[in-house]
Deep mutational scan, measured.
Amino acid sequence: NEEPLPEGWEIRYTREGVRYFVDHNTRTTTFKDPRNGKS
């Protein structure tokens, strides 16, 4: 039961299956979860 991502964020996966987060607001990507700060 995960809380929803902030507005404008999306979860994607690399070809290796590593989860990362896309911030469409700033057009950046990060491996850090914007909901809780954990990677």
Rank of each mutant, 00 (worst) to 15 (best):
N1A: 13
N1W: 13
N1D: 14
N1K: 13
N1I: 13
N1E: 14
N1C: 14
N1Y: 13
N1M: 13
N1L: 12
E2M: 10
E2R: 09
E2F: 10
E2G: 10
E2S: 10
E2N: 10
E2K: 09
E2Q: 10
E2C: 14
E2Y: 11
E3R: 11
E3C: 15
E3S: 11
E3I: 12
E3A: 13
E3V: 12
E3T: 10
E3M: 13
E3W: 09
E3Q: 11
E3Y: 10
P4V: 07
P4F: 07
P4E: 09
P4R: 08
P4H: 08
P4S: 09
P4D: 10
P4M: 09
P4G: 10
P4A: 11
L5C: 01
L5G: 02
L5W: 04
L5A: 03
L5T: 03
L5M: 11
L5H: 02
L5Q: 02
P6G: 05
P6V: 03
P6W: 04
P6H: 03
P6E: 04
P6F: 03
P6Q: 04
P6L: 04
E7D: 14
E7G: 08
E7S: 11
E7V: 09
E7A: 12
E7W: 08
E7N: 11
E7R: 11
E7F: 09
G8K: 04
G8E: 03
G8P: 02
G8S: 04
G8W: 04
G8Q: 04
G8R: 04
G8F: 05
G8D: 03
G8Y: 04
W9G: 00
W9P: 00
W9K: 00
W9V: 02
W9Y: 04
W9M: 02
W9N: 00
W9T: 01
W9C: 01
W9E: 00
W9D: 00
W9L: 02
E10H: 06
E10K: 03
E10T: 07
E10Y: 06
E10V: 07
E10G: 05
E10L: 04
E10W: 03
E10N: 04
I11V: 09
I11T: 07
I11Y: 04
I11F: 05
I11E: 10
I11Q: 08
I11W: 03
I11C: 08
I11L: 09
I11N: 01
R12Q: 08
R12Y: 07
R12I: 06
R12H: 08
R12A: 09
R12P: 00
R12D: 04
R12S: 06
R12M: 10
Y13E: 06
Y13N: 04
Y13K: 05
Y13P: 00
Y13V: 08
Y13D: 02
Y13S: 05
T14M: 03
T14H: 02
T14V: 03
T14P: 01
T14N: 08
T14R: 01
T14W: 02
R15D: 12
R15N: 12
R15F: 09
R15K: 14
R15E: 13
R15W: 10
R15A: 14
R15P: 14
E16Y: 10
E16P: 04
E16D: 13
E16R: 14
E16T: 14
E16C: 15
E16F: 12
E16M: 12
E16N: 15
G17L: 05
G17K: 06
G17E: 03
G17R: 06
G17S: 04
G17P: 00
G17V: 01
V18E: 09
V18A: 08
V18N: 08
V18K: 11
V18H: 11
V18W: 08
V18P: 02
V18Q: 10
V18M: 11
V18Y: 10
R19E: 08
R19G: 04
R19V: 09
R19C: 11
R19K: 11
R19Y: 05
R19S: 06
R19L: 09
R19N: 04
R19D: 02
R19I: 13
R19F: 05
Y20W: 03
Y20M: 06
Y20E: 04
Y20F: 12
Y20C: 07
Y20K: 01
Y20P: 00
F21Q: 00
F21Y: 08
F21D: 00
F21N: 00
F21A: 00
F21R: 00
F21I: 00
F21T: 01
F21S: 00
V22E: 06
V22D: 02
V22T: 04
V22N: 02
V22R: 05
V22S: 02
V22P: 00
D23K: 02
D23H: 08
D23A: 02
D23W: 02
D23I: 01
D23Y: 03
D23E: 05
D23M: 02
D23T: 01
H24M: 08
H24L: 09
H24Y: 08
H24D: 05
H24Q: 08
H24E: 06
H24S: 08
H24I: 09
H24P: 04
H24C: 08
N25W: 07
N25E: 06
N25K: 10
N25H: 08
N25D: 06
N25Y: 08
N25Q: 08
N25R: 08
N25L: 09
N25A: 08
N25M: 08
T26S: 09
T26Q: 05
T26W: 02
T26A: 06
T26M: 05
T26Y: 03
T26L: 05
T26D: 04
R27N: 15
R27W: 07
R27G: 15
R27C: 15
R27F: 08
R27E: 11
R27M: 14
R27H: 15
R27K: 15
R27T: 08
T28I: 08
T28M: 07
T28A: 05
T28Y: 06
T28V: 07
T28W: 04
T28C: 15
T28F: 07
T28D: 06
T28H: 07
T28S: 08
T28Q: 09
T28K: 11
T29P: 08
T29Q: 12
T29G: 07
T29L: 13
T29A: 14
T29R: 12
T29F: 12
T30Y: 05
T30R: 05
T30H: 15
T30E: 04
T30W: 05
T30I: 05
T30F: 03
T30L: 03
T30M: 05
F31C: 15
F31T: 15
F31L: 15
F31Y: 10
F31I: 14
F31Q: 12
F31V: 13
F31E: 10
F31H: 14
F31D: 13
F31M: 15
K32R: 13
K32P: 05
K32S: 11
K32H: 15
K32F: 15
K32T: 14
K32A: 11
K32Q: 15
D33T: 00
D33M: 00
D33E: 02
D33F: 01
D33L: 00
D33I: 00
D33C: 02
D33Y: 01
D33P: 04
P34R: 00
P34E: 01
P34L: 00
P34Q: 01
P34G: 01
P34A: 00
R35M: 03
R35N: 04
R35V: 04
R35S: 03
R35Q: 03
R35F: 05
R35K: 02
R35L: 04
R35P: 03
R35G: 03
R35C: 03
R35E: 04
N36Q: 12
N36F: 11
N36V: 14
N36R: 08
N36Y: 11
N36K: 12
N36M: 12
N36I: 14
N36E: 15
G37E: 12
G37M: 10
G37V: 13
G37I: 11
G37S: 12
G37D: 13
G37W: 09
G37R: 10
G37N: 13
G37K: 12
G37T: 13
G37L: 11
K38D: 14
K38I: 14
K38F: 11
K38W: 11
K38N: 14
K38S: 14
K38V: 14
K38G: 13
K38P: 14
K38H: 14
S39C: 15
S39G: 13
S39V: 14
S39W: 12
S39D: 13
S39T: 12
S39K: 12
S39H: 13
S39M: 13
